[in-house]
Nucleic acid binder design. Structure first.
Lengths: 189, 189
DNA sequence: GTCTATAATCGGATAGAC
DNA sequence: GTCTATCCGATTATAGAC
């Protein structure tokens, strides 16, 4: 792995753990095993490095979520697969987390990959919900875009509940609750 | 308002806006119009002041949410009132936000009011869902604790979606989506 | 490409005068 | 109770040698 790569990876870790305001160039250099001169040779500064790290994290999330959502199965099964997929719940979402960072939100450049990733996820889930409606799995009165937003919000909020309590239990409860509401069996009661 | 109060209020604002790691004693003093000596006379330091601020914010949230949840009406109406109540969506939740702060989560003392507030909210919502089940408003197979977690997660995650896109639209979509799934009319399809 | 030196400002306080 | 002085390390770089 090149020095540049190690710097990006270290930044990804620290952004996930401590956010943008909580991450210093010095900490990045120590994690990457690189000196100051090295870091400023490869990147213009903290924002530049953060942008590279955020883009890579966003790309990775898209890949991981995409694979789950493209899996075979009914709409309900794929949504269930997304909600219940293995996660490092107590670490939170490496992308969603950035929305709580004042400097990320204040910068159009830093926020863009976050916005695009979440917009893509909502869009992909809306397509799947639409398929479910078309196949008669879900009530036709449901608005796919709204349900998609609820699904993504449940996951993002699930992280908040879990971190508040220090336990993954709340995340799982929120996911189960949403799935019960979405379940063809329950809804057809 | 006393100097002590002004310090707490300034800290509340800054914690909401920038989080714990992003808030410096100097910034607090400037916002409060107080000198350093003044701040360190009233509080032992940044963690002490933050604790007072977080407790006050938690208390206020409990009051506001409690009033909405204690309102008259069916279970669905009260949940709907909670989800759709007026909020400063793009600022996010002043309590939930703290769960993304590494130093808050690392401190049992600072995390406690956050944990208690969210646990209380989940409990109160679970009671309301249970009432809805008892009255036949909701499917009896629903697990009230799980649905309550989904409701709180939808709100907390709604803030994330809204801040990612820079628009309140996503929050509203997530709330509508969950309400549609919860709606006696839709569920009875 | 990487290293060390230097620097201005901030962070988070303590000490003591008033 | 509030103010000013002082302190030491961290932050976020830039400059120039190697």
């Amino acid at each position: 792995m090149s020095t540049s790569d190690r710097l990006i990876e270290a930044t990804r870790e620290l952004l996930w753990e401590r956010g943008y305001v909580g991450t210093s160039p010095k900490a990045i250099q120590q994690h990457a095993g690189a000196g100051q001169g090295s870091m400023y040779h490869h990147f213009a500064g903290k924002p530049d490095l953060a942008l590279a790290a955020i883009r890579r994290t966003a790309q990775e999330l898209r890949g991981t979520a995409g694979r789950v959502l493209d899996a075979p199965g009914s709409a309900y099964e794929r949504i269930s697969g997304y909600l219940l997929r293995e996660r490092d719940v107590l670490r939170g979402c490496p992308v969603g987390r950035l929305t709580m960072d004042p400097e990320v939100v204040a910068s159009d450049e830093l926020r863009a990959p976050v916005d695009e990733t979440i917009a893509w996820l909502r869009g992909r889930l809306a397509e799947i919900v639409q398929e479910g409606v078309d196949r008669g799995e879900f009530d036709a009165r449901l608005v796919p875009e709204d349900i998609a937003a609820s699904i993504v919000a449940t996951v993002q909020g699930g992280y908040v509940l879990a971190r508040a309590s220090g336990s993954t239990e709340a995340f799982d409860a929120a996911a189960r609750g949403l799935l019960a509401l979405l379940s063809p069996r329950t809804a057809a009661s």
